[in-house]
Design a protein around this nucleic acid. Sequence first.
DNA 1: ACAAAAAACGAACGGTCGTGCTAAAAAGCC
DNA 2: GGCTTTTTAGCACGACCGTTCGTTTTTTGT
Lengths: 200, 200
Amino acid sequence: MGKGDETRQTILDEALALCSQVGVSGLSIGSLADKAGMSKSGVFAHFGSKEELQIAVMRESQQRFVDIVVRPALKAPRGIARLRAIFTNWLDWTERARLPGGCPMNAAAQEFDDQPGPVRDAVEAGLADGHRLLANAVRMAIEAGELRPDTDIDQFVFEFTGLTLANMQSKRLFKDRDANRRALDAFERLVRDYSPQGKE
Amino acid sequence: MGKGDETRQTILDEALALCSQVGVSGLSIGSLADKAGMSKSGVFAHFGSKEELQIAVMRESQQRFVDIVVRPALKAPRGIARLRAIFTNWLDWTERARLPGGCPMNAAAQEFDDQPGPVRDAVEAGLADGHRLLANAVRMAIEAGELRPDTDIDQFVFEFTGLTLANMQSKRLFKDRDANRRALDAFERLVRDYSPQGKE
DNA sequence: ACAAAAAACGAACGGTCGTGCTAAAAAGCC
DNA sequence: GGCTTTTTAGCACGACCGTTCGTTTTTTGT
């Protein structure tokens, strides 16, 4: 198909940027239509309901995350190098993705964590997918002998994501210019703790 | 004063619970009035504007956090024991505070991080205060000789809060029953890394 | 008990929300 | 170029939003 999908993509781009600032439930069809230079019903027709729009935004966010954070990191060799590439890409992925208000998915996770429904499902699926990709990278690092064989993969992922969350809060709320450095230092400490020739 | 402040407190209690579920910007005066069994204008009169209500909720949230997380931990001796007490209290403080939807302050931090104004200021002040209290506890642990003298306090706080954030996401979005254990394991590893007789 | 003050109510306002429905415009196809 | 299909606009709807105002109820002080 032609024109339809094209403007749908345009709308989604605007929706993602807007959503990053006001949240996925704060995103309204009227304001989105203004940003996209369209009528309210014109935007509406592309999704059929607000819920479908929200789900589409989450999916788009997930895909863009993969494109910006995960895919480029695959050029790094398997092991800690690739883990580090994922991590550094993660730290400022929202800026590279032109999302002025931070990660829409993480924001949505907070908004919808106790609001069952398809939107929540999409958010959970999106973040779970990220964790799965990350877990795979950790497993490869273990297989490459760069992390201890008895490394608890889920534990590693848990701490890894904790650092990205702390980084976002530090950077966005406290405008801390040292946030990235702090996160990177913590990452290196994390890797060192789980490395075979490391301490213990 | 009498009756006024009393019902104001009742309203704030309901507001906190409601806010934890729908977020601080999703909280509406109408629904809050329903929960409190009052009229919309009756609730409104106590705060004068929605913004003032939001600020009041943030302040109340902060105070309750101190009451539930920080104050009880002061019974533990200075040092790592107290840090651990703060941490464990932190992990499930929202349940003990009867906040069914998670920490309102953290949610607000995401919603308002790029929306300047008094609400954002209140959020930042509240979280900064928490960080300050935590930093003090870390400093005491250093002075007690239980953490290395060259410990970067802000770095420690950064990683500490990262664990609490990961814990909340794990628990609330993924319903992970191992979240607390994961967080505690990570905490012990964190402390060990910065302890004088630890590795390195 | 009674007057003064405080607090809660009820109705109304202009706005915006999501969502239908119908008509106009644009795009795709022969 | 005309015809069909797709895409967009315009308008209206009921619901809820924050806020204002005048009235009524409740509390307070004496």
